[in-house]
Amino acid sequence: MCRVVGYLGRPLLLDSVLFATDSSLARQTYSPRMMATFLNLAGFGMAAWNDGSERPEEPFLYKVTSLPVFDRNLKCLAEKVSARCVIAHVRGVTYSEHEVLMQTNLHPFRFPGVKVTLAHNGHLREFARMRFDLVGHVHPTFVKHIEGTTDSEWIYALLLSQLDDPFGTPSADEIADGIVRTLRIVREIRQKHEIATSSPVNLFASTGTCLVATRFSFDYGWYPEGDAMLETDLPYVSLWYTLGEEYRERDGEWQMGASDHPESLLIASEPLTADTSRWLEAPEYSILTASLQNGGVDALIADLDV
């Protein structure tokens, strides 16, 4: 499992989501509050879009296999750089010599020439049995860009291949439709191979002007025999959000300011503060779409029934 944060809205200092709060993403590497018996120690990645930067439609990417809490460079950057859109991810993998810790396995993924960036919280069980069947659904251009060993990068390549114009700038709805098609293909291949164990697929996708997130799992509630990670796997993988004027510290508390016309949206695997009362839990089997529109953020939650 992993932890992910997505942000869209008013320019926000990266420190606000990465370090400043009492349940920041950096802290969630070694002390996630909503994930029992599991830590996210396999690296950090981030894509952030800044209007004042060169080519603002392109994010700057930062990936490192060390932990953000020990990353002085990241901390210095986070205190100086703000962004209108962010996807940041800390990777968690099972404690095994079979896991591959390298930069090409870090999220979010972004292939050359495309606008869509993706991070994944979850895992497709028995992915090795599915990979060959996925090839036929992935555009050859994207197959050759796959550098890592993760199921997540294949999901990303599959998603890009489902978009009408994978090199264009799709809207939030077009990305959401692409995600639905992607999940349907994955379900079909799982059925073909009779894979019927719980496989969470919480996705965070963005072009820098929109943000799409899913809270979803295939075959939730079914686990392989002798699942050593059962206590971690039992709960439905979490997703929270807070929507409002601006995310900042008020009277010692980090919170989103109230607004009838929201200008900022934070989505996270778990709230960035120990006090969760300012956050809402996204329903299970749902997809959240958000776009920058008329100076604000237009957000919608829909059921995701694949």
């Binding site: 349907r184 929507l243 809402l280 829909a302 059921d303 995701l304």
Partner: peptide
């Protein structure tokens, strides 16, 4: 769900 509905972010009809 009470807080979600009160915050007027209720789920819309199913996507598929």
């Amino acid at each position: 769900p009470h807080a979600r509905l009160a915050a007027r972010a209720s789920p819309s009809p199913r996507r598929s």
